[in-house]
Design a protein around this nucleic acid. Structure first.
Length: 900
RNA sequence: GGGCGAAUAGCUCAGCUGGUCAGAGCGCCUGCCUUACACGCAGGAUGUCGGGGGUUCGAGUCCCUCUUCGCCCACCA
């Protein structure tokens, strides 16, 4: 673990071995009886056959940061990993493989197909979990679950049976969403509405008596073959006389009635609606109210069924659409075609246009559960970040329709329902005769009908994938058994995910948690943004604009990936990355990792014999510089902790970044070099302080960059052998280590150094050239610092000598400090009076503007009267300081004899 | 059709409870290969904080309105 640091940072050298070491040592395993307050994150289980993409990279990085942060804060932090069998998605993948051999699942048969999928999952499944390891995910792998595990399957059955017994699961014939490509129903949440430019066809239907026509408007003309009625609004004067009459349906020559129904909007289209109860939810309702027949005009794969005239049979729905329209046209019954913008439902797995279809399915009655969820929200049992999503969720719960949970797939949890044979009307599959028609819903697989002893046939369908994943917050911990894990780790705490699955998954977990555990499964739902490309398009395979996190990791390291992602993502906004330029996209992470590595290399190189433990240092031996960095460290601790706690991870990393790079590296390490190199005394104190603040910095950064911080931390002196930074204590700000006076002194010194550097740059003073510096009316602290310890500034501003003076020097460049004191840098021949006059003039001009504005502000009686005293005082101090600086500048210009 | 979010330097974005909040990183310009780092160091330029109005002593920060993007929801066929 502690080989010397390579001169060149190579993440691939450290990351693999460190991860192995972490898991071997079990740092991320949490036992139920471990001490400490629990903290639990349930990982949204990726699809078992998924491969890591940028979206995963983002969400799992965030989760890992949070769990690492809480672990270091001493909580028994558990991150539960798992995979989802992903019914439709996985079945689709295997079907595609079969298609390459020219076969369908029906050729293979159900049993063999399922076997096929299982083998496929066994071979390729779970790779995403290994990929998570490359990312550094600190999950408790001993708890990895799979939604088709026997344990979880048992829980799924238990839930189904319980809900059935409570009357919350029922079977019914309704219009459902049907994907004609996946050949299954979908829940409303699995349908993605896409706005499209379509057409609205106005069709003429002649009345039975030939006296008149009625015009209907439709977006799906092909469904007219299944029309069984026409509906108009009861109050619509135009059609009042037609209500009750029949229409002779063109093309099919069927008589259908004109009915009056409130559901019709008289202002839309022609005000008359063709009613197709088998293919539209509104029509279904209208049909039911008026006793209209249902005619299913489509087959499973969205071709026209045998219920339509022969010439249409077997035609694809869109071909049939064209044909219907053209026949209406030929008959002179096509009134017009209107452009129409509307939302069309698409399958969330294959993007095929979904067909509303009448079908016998199983549903969960969600309204009672949704009410409980909203009640819990109103009672503050959970919150969402960003907050506005809470309102979105609430409104959603208020308008929920029942959840269709049966899927006509072969891959998934078989529905635990058996029919006493002979009733099996399930999609017309009659088997043996006999049986009593009993429906058995059971936890155990029954062998025969408990009523009549006949053979049983199990429901052919499987359950919606989400019907198992909505339970994982407790089933992953052993439910329905009352396990110690369940007692210790339910309810959990933070749910991190993308808004896309708020309804599909998060809402349902809340409902199931309340229903089966009596408590919401988490207290905070953190919804992060989406990873997009530079054109703000979602990354996707089909667009080819994705970023492969593993490629980034192998090139630049997991830490660079993680840092970039966390740094670039603020609460509620998307993360934009350029797939075409990984090098630039991940530059901030790469650079920072490299910087950290080199800080470590330098510092550790200065500690060949270790360092005195920081707590043995006599505070009197600390110099202003030491006190300054310690003060800054307390600030970094407090600020970053606050940001981590508030989920502002980008702010947290920015805080640590500034502390490490700007404070530790740019100033502190440079300032102590003279001591480290023994050009000055006090090297041991400097080494000790440096080691201490670096230790603090590594801890603060560890949640975001676990590998590099661990690699460096392992090499720090004084760390306990065999311990990991992952379990090291989170730093706590210590007021005893805040030194405001020293901080002020160093801030003044930094101003001075910056001023000197500016002069060097302005006058192109060669780096090696020694400069003399005179202090005119310098403030006491800075004077004391410089005179007592001139060497302290050497590495910062180049070679210089410092002496006090009481008169301005003409041949010099001047720096006006914040307190109005003037520092002059002797430039000899290099000085250019005109240039210096201009330089100082510009400065003076800027200050004069500030002074004028400030005088205006303070001259405003309202401001002085109404603003808090502290604010006014602060503004006055600023004015005084600026005036002094401006005055000093003018004085200097007079001394130089500058023209105006 | 409803609801929501965003608009700040060339790019990607910070700016948490109205008063150093006009910032960071990348990019750009200048000078440095200073024995941790050129993935570096130092210095520097760039913005009427989308437009307009309002509240306030004071507004990127709160309110209204407009414009432009984006997202979510929706049984107007």
């Amino acid at each position: 673990m502690t080989a010397p640091l390579a001169p060149q940072f190579d993440p691939s050298e450290i990351e693999g071995p460190l991860y192995t070491w972490w898991t071997e040592r079990g740092f991320y395993h949490v036992a139920a009886d471990a001490p400490g307050e629990p903290y639990v994150i349930q990982m949204p289980p990726p699809n078992v056959t998924a491969v890591l993409h940028a979206g995963h990279g983002l969400t799992y990085t965030v989760q890992d940061v949070l769990v690492r942060f809480e672990r270091m804060r001493g909580r028994k932090a558990l991150w539960v990993p798992g995979t989802d069998h992903a019914g439709i998605a996985t079945q689709n993948v295997v079907e595609k493989l079969l298609a390459r051999e020219g076969k369908t699942r029906f050729d293979v048969g159900r049993e063999a197909f399922v076997e096929h999928v299982m083998n496929f999952v066994r071979e390729t499944g779970g790779t995403i979990l290994d990929q998570l390891k490359a990312l550094g995910a600190s999950c408790d792998w001993s708890r990895t679950y799979y939604t088709l595990d026997p344990k979880l399957s048992r829980a799924v059955r238990e839930v189904f049976v319980q809900l059935y017994e409570k009357g919350l699961i029922y079977r019914g014939k309704y219009i459902v969403n049907w994907c004609p490509r996946c050949l299954t129903t979908l829940s409303n949440e699995e349908v993605e509405k896409e706005e499209q430019d379509g057409s609205l066809w106005h069709l003429k239907y002649p009345l039975e008596d030939g006296s008149d026509f009625i015009v209907v408007a439709t977006t799906r003309p092909e469904t007219m073959l299944g029309d069984t009625g026409i509906a108009v609004h009861p109050g619509d004067e135009r059609y009042r006389g037609m209500i009750g009459k029949n229409v002779r349906l063109p093309l099919v020559d069927r008589l259908v009635p004109i009915v009056a129904d409130d559901a019709v909007d008289a202002t839309f289209g022609s005000g008359a609606v063709k009613v197709t109860p088998a293919h539209d939810p509104t029509d279904f309702d209208i049909g039911r109210r008026h006793g209209l027949a249902t005619i299913d005009v489509m087959t499973d794969d969205a071709r026209m069924s045998d219920a339509v005239p022969e010439r249409f049979r077997g035609l694809d729905r869109y071909i049939a659409r064209k044909m219907v329209v053209s026949e209406f046209d030929t008959l002179g019954l096509l009134v017009r075609i209107e452009k129409h913008h509307h939302a069309v439902g698409h399958c969330y797995r294959c993007n095929t246009v979904v067909e509303p279809r009448l079908s016998d399915q199983w549903f969960v009655k969600v309204t009672p559960m949704a009410e409980q969820a909203n009640l819990a929200y109103l009672n503050g049992k959970f919150r969402l970040i960003p907050e506005f999503h809470g309102d979105v969720l609430q409104r959603w719960h208020e308008n929920l329709r029942d959840w269709c949970i049966s899927r006509q797939l072969w891959w998934g949890h078989r529905i635990p329902v058996w029919y006493c044979d002979g009733t099996g009307e399930k999609r017309g599959e009659r088997r043996e005769k006999g049986g009593c028609g009993r429906v058995i819903v059971s936890r155990e697989t029954p062998t025969q009908c408990d009523k009549c002893g006949s053979a049983l046939v199990q429901d052919e369908d499987v359950l919606d994938t989400w019907f198992s994943s909505w339970l994982v917050p407790f089933t992953s911990l052993g439910w329905p058994d009352r396990t110690p894990d369940l007692a210790a780790f339910y309810p959990g705490h933070t749910m991190v995910t993308a808004p896309e699955i708020l309804f599909l998954w998060v809402s349902r977990m809340i409902m199931s948690g309340l229903e089966f555990m009596g408590e919401v499964p988490f207290t905070t739902i953190y919804l992060h943004g989406t990873v997009r490309d530079t054109q703000h398009r979602k990354m996707s395979k089909s667009l080819g604009n994705g970023i492969d996190p593993l490629e980034v990791i192998s090139r630049y390291g997991a830490d660079a990936f993680r840092y970039t992602v966390v740094n670039g993502m603020s609460v509620g906004t998307d993360l934009i990355l350029d797939p075409a330029d990984l090098e630039t996209s991940f530059a901030s992470g790469r650079y920072f990792a490299n910087k950290l590595w080199n800080i470590g290399r330098f510092l550790l190189g200065q500690l060949p014999d270790g360092a005195r433990p920081f707590d043995t240092i006599d505070p009197n031996d600390l110099r202003d510089t030491d006190r300054w960095i310690l003060t800054r460290a307390q600030g970094a601790i407090a600020e970053s902790t606050r940001h981590y706690e508030g989920f502002r991870l980008n702010e947290a990393t920015a805080t640590v970044y500034r502390f490490i790079w700007n404070d530790v590296a740019d100033w502190y390490l440079e300032q102590i070099k003279s001591r480290l190199y023994d050009k000055e005394p006090g090297g041991d104190v400097a080494r000790s302080v440096a080691a201490h603040v670096f230790d603090v910095a590594l801890r603060l950064l560890h949640p975001v960059m676990p590998f590099i911080t661990e690699a460096l931390w392992q090499r720090l002196p004084n760390h306990a052998e065999g311990s990991s930074i992952a379990c090291a204590a989170w730093p706590v700000a210590d007021d005893a280590l805040r030194f405001p006076a020293s901080e002020a002194t160093i801030v003044a010194a930094q101003e001075l150094v910056t001023g000197i550097r500016t002069i060097r740059a302005d006058y192109n003073v060669p780096p090696g050239q020694k400069l003399s510096v005179w202090l005119l009316d310098a403030g006491e602290p800075i004077k004391a610092l410089l005179l007592s310890n001139p060497g302290a500034m050497l590495p910062l501003s180049g070679s210089l000598s410092i002496q006090p003076t009481s008169t301005p020097l003409p041949a010099s460049g001047s720096v006006i400090l914040g307190d109005g004191s003037t520092v002059m840098v002797a430039l000899g021949d290099l000085v250019d009076l005109d240039r210096e006059c201009a330089r100082l003039g510009t400065e003076a001009g800027k200050l004069d503007k500030l002074v004028a504005a400030q005088e205006g502000k303070l001259g405003n009686d309202q401001f002085v009267a109404r603003a808090p005293v502290a604010v006014v005082e602060n503004e006055r101090e600023k004015l005084v300081a600026w005036r002094m600086q401006a005055e000093a500048l003018r004085e200097k210009r007079r001394a130089l004899g500058c023209a105006n």
